[in-house]
């Protein structure tokens, strides 16, 4: 029996989604091969992208080795974001944590004004995450969408409880939605089906919820791997969206990341790299050093077949 390289070719293509406008745009998705499978037939026009996360309030828990790279900038979200831009990010992710009723319950218009200022002051495309409280997000995110109309921001989480009001605001004001559902492929598809009744699928990105190493990463890993494969291999329209892995915060919440810097960087790094290999198109991290380490590890001596 002769060896014939087991090259594969698939029929599905992940939709290419564009975020931002003018000279700050970011494209994600567009591939018809599995992650880094440059040996198969097809291509990955947009390598996975990385964003660093900024909070809209000073972190209450101060982990020295996580905050050190940003210095005093953490007291001002815009300065914090600008500092992130010096670390070679593809995008900034602003999390409106202060709006959470369990945090400061700060008002929607205040949050929206901050987003607007940030859009005008930073040079990279912006991702905006609400607090995750589905009721409060239903107030905050539509207002963000309106005040920043036309900026083509990536906005989420759009959940099954608030998809109508948040999704509609995203549609009417020209943004892209992050559809989030908790670690279940059927729920995820169901939400996409509902959203795509009024939102073009090119304006939807999937967030299947990312769990950290040691705290359920195997569920996120296999779910992302399956979503990607069902999209690319079986051409299922409702899973052919790019995938965002918002994992930084999950990792830095762990005891292991908090107690030691090296361990923290690896906790975030291994989580990110695993979800990257599973199929994430956009990864949101907290620590700039993790970003650097991952890029240099995958780099393959600077070779990136196009």
């Amino acid at each position: 029996m002769e060896y014939k390289a087991p090259v594969e070719a698939y029929k599905g293509v992940v939709r290419e989604v564009t975020i931002g406008k003018g000279d700050k745009v970011l494209k994600i998705g567009g591939e018809n091969i599995l992650p880094l499978h440059f040996f198969d037939e097809g291509s990955m026009p947009n390598p996975p992208k990385f964003a660093l996360e900024v909070l809209d309030m000073e972190p209450t828990e101060k982990i020295p080795h996580l905050l050190e790279p940003f210095g005093n900038a953490i007291s001002d979200p815009i300065q914090w974001a600008k500092k992130c831009e010096t670390f070679g990010v593809d995008a900034i992710c602003l999390t409106l944590l202060s709006t959470d009723p369990a945090e400061k319950d700060s008002p929607a218009d205040q949050a929206a004004q901050l987003v607007k200022r940030m859009v005008s002051e930073i040079k990279k495309p912006l991702i905006v995450y609400g607090s995750g409280d589905e009721k409060k997000d239903a107030e905050v995110l539509p207002m963000v969408a309106q005040i920043c109309a036309g900026e083509n921001l990536l906005i989420g989480p759009v959940q099954k409880e608030n998809f109508e009001v948040v999704g509609k605001a995203i549609l009417e004001n020209g943004h892209v939605a992050i559809a989030q559902s908790p670690l279940d492929i059927n729920l995820l598809k169901e939400l996409n089906v509902k959203l795509c009744k009024f939102l073009p699928p090119e304006r939807v990105v999937i967030d299947p919820l990312s769990s950290a190493l040691g705290y359920g990463i195997e569920y996120s890993f296999s779910l992302i791997e399956r979503v990607k494969q069902i999209g690319i291999i079986t051409k299922d329209s409702m899973t052919m969206m790019p995938i965002v892995a918002n994992l930084g915060d999950e990792c830095w919440k762990t005891k292991q990341a908090k107690e030691n810097e090296t361990q923290g960087l690896l906790w975030e790094g291994i989580t990110a790299l695993s979800l990257y290999l599973a199929g994430a198109n956009l990864l949101i991290l907290r620590h700039p050093e993790t970003l650097k380490l991952i890029k240099e590890t995958i780099g393959g001596n600077g070779r990136w077949p196009s």
Binding site: L265, L266, L273, I294, E296
Partner: peptide, 9 residues
């Protein structure tokens, strides 16, 4: 740490 990340791949 890059060696460790390589191992993780």
């Amino acid at each position: 740490l890059k060696e460790i990340l390589t191992a993780s791949v």
